[in-house]
Design a protein around this nucleic acid. Structure first.
Lengths: 193, 193
DNA sequence: TTCATTTATTGAACTTGTTCAATTTTTTTA
DNA sequence: TAAAAAAATTGAACAAGTTCAATAAATGAA
């Protein structure tokens, strides 16, 4: 059940087998049906999750009702609202399964336990947070400097597998454009070939 | 010299005085004149810095020559290119002093030393990285959902002190708009009062 | 298989933001 | 304190992206 998680951790840090085993035992396996929610706006996020199957989107709904997708998470990606989880405050995000999915979840209490008793784990999460932070910085710069056409091309080049599994509605919400405009971009690109 | 740094650390984690002292001794004090650079595009970022005086901007220049500001750092803020520093690869960023400034710098080697020998420090940087990550997520959502007018109003409300110390050129590069357009926004806001 | 729902496409009118160029204002430096 | 440099403003023409509405295509559920 936790073999993907073990592989993933071994890729990022060095850790003894017993420590790894002990850490993975803190997770609970859950099956999440397509279109159901792991987290809703207003709830406190009580978990940090590792996706073993399927695909999720983490998004915000603004006061006009428009959705902005913060990120997607497919197999071997982590999902949580780090702000809500860490500070135990109500989330402003939704986490929804876009496909029938499976996740391994750890509670805050168990994660704190790991931090104090399994020294390698503090490092794991420092490294992971750093990586996602660097990726987000990159995305921020791209959003500030690049046109929607270019951001779309970058997206399908960077995440070819993910792109195949997403509707254009989802991709548009990630890129920060209307889906109509994305459709026009796709049309323009296709006619250039 | 390191008293601001000590205060800052004590605000975020609990640490013994001897550990704190030992950690702070790893830093080197530097004076950076206005308009000079701590880091340039292409260099490997060899430091992580804590600003004790002055103001910096961390920015990217895209292939059209336009500047995008990733963040500002004034007193009690950290500055580095976390990607370049961690992975020892050439940076794509510039770090420039916008005022006569002073920083405390720690090298990668000394930071690694701290990570292995001063357990509280691993936590400090995990917490700090998490905080900046949450702030960047917030900014990403705002950039995806809000109009430039609103982002400008948010900026001056969120960072009133910083706003006073920055030119509109800098603020526009942070908001991701042209400075001419920012000028028009300011005009519109002023005439509404 | 069929019907209902969701997703994608297209066009027209509109809004937001850019670019370029000229001018004024402010700040810096000699 | 004058001259030079940098920052801010303004207008006009343009480009990027949105909104709304109508239609077509694809997907899902019974």
């Amino acid at each position: 059940m936790t073999s993907f998680l073990k592989q993933h951790i071994n890729k990022h840090i060095s850790i003894s087998d017993t420590e790894l085993e002990e850490f993975c035992n803190l997770f609970q396996h859950e099956i999440i049906k397509k279109k159901s929610f792991l987290l809703r706006d207003g709830d406190v996020c009580r978990f940090e999750g590792f996706v073993t199957k399927g695909l999720f989107r983490v998004y915000h709904i603004d006061k006009n009702g428009a959705e902005q997708i913060l990120y997607f998470a497919m197999e071997n990606w982590w999902i949580t609202d780090i702000d809500s989880f860490t500070n135990e405050r109500p989330s402003q995000l939704f986490i929804e399964a876009l496909e029938d999915s499976e996740v391994l979840l750890i509670s805050k209490k168990d994660k704190e336990f790991a931090y104090t008793n399994l020294p390698a784990i503090e490092k794991l999460f420092r490294v992971m947070t750093q990586k996602t932070h660097v990726a987000l910085q990159r995305r921020m710069i791209d959003n500030l400097s690049k046109t929607a056409d270019q951001r779309y091309l970058d997206f399908i080049e960077k995440y070819p597998q993910l792109h195949q599994r997403l509707s254009n509605l989802q991709i548009a919400a990630y890129l920060g454009i209307s889906h109509e405009f994305l459709s026009k971009i796709r049309n323009k690109i296709a006619s250039k070939r």
